[in-house]
Amino acid sequence: MDQTRRVPLSEIYRTFFVIGLFSFGGGLVSWIYRDTVDVRKWMSREDFLPGVALAQVMPGVSSTNCAIYVGQILRGWLGALTAITAMLSGPFVISLAAAWAYKSLLHIPGFQETMVGVAAAAIGMLMRTGVEAARPQIRDLSAMAVMIASFLAVGVFRFPLVPVICVMGPISVALAWPKAKAEAAE
């Protein structure tokens, strides 16, 4: 993690602000990779890659998790704070403007019906993400069992999420342990 130069916080802010602003429907981690490793050469590929797995495994959204990881490597906690704030500030303002507009559009005939259609399309895309996430589990019996059990617990039986995670998380990791491999260090 040796830094050839100290990346200014303002540059971190600018980079992640743009990434946040144009973020639509995922794929952001690869964008962060392109911007920070390929284009700006802030860090090496070897420094970046562990962050991808970390961002995926930890709770929270993988793109903002990845931003925190990158910010942290570049400039410690200040860098992490700058990166996540930058990434969220644009969408935060835009979303609130949209929510405000939403309230004033509610009385328009047909608006609510239209919103159901937008929501349905968004649910369809979410379901596709689920299909992609489920694919690698299919050949693995215990992973399938964990997936179905967590779905039933939270989605059907409406058990609260936190206790479900506290029980299922350790069980699932323990089940995966015998199959887990150490990757050769690069």
């Binding site: 962050g51 995926q56 179905i148 967590s150 089940l175 342990w177 199959k179 887990a180 260090a185």
Partner: peptide, 29 residues
């Protein structure tokens, strides 16, 4: 995490938590 890259427990966490996340996603859907 970055100091222990490529260790076995990384892979175990990934393999263990990914199906959990997938199940919760379907619950959301």
């Amino acid at each position: 995490w970055s100091r222990h890259r490529g260790k076995r427990w990384h892979n175990a966490l990934e393999r263990g938590l990914n199906p959990l996340g997938a199940g919760l996603l379907f619950a959301g859907v």
